[in-house]
């Protein structure tokens, strides 16, 4: 998958734990781990905007395209 999820980088920058993000965004820990570990096949705009709002960042800060 050429899309890399930099969620852990953003979490570190904001000094926020995964559990705190779960509570703020309102999605389950298992779904957030799927996203964090790069196993996710798709992400809903609603989830993305909730994460961006909580972490005060842009979608590009979380998602990155890398050539295979």
């Amino acid at each position: 998958m050429p899309i890399i999820v930099n969620l852990d980088v953003m979490l570190a920058k904001r000094k926020m734990s995964l559990t705190e993000l779960c509570e703020e965004v309102g999605i389950t820990m298992s779904n957030l781990s799927i996203l964090k570990t790069g196993k996710a096949k798709a992400i809903r705009f609603s989830t993305l905007s909730a994460i961006c709002k909580t972490l005060n960042c842009q979608p590009g800060d979380i998602l990155e395209f890398v050539e295979d």
Partner: peptide, 8 residues
Amino acid sequence: QQEQDLTV
């Protein structure tokens, strides 16, 4: 279904 499951 697997794809659905991996949509967050």
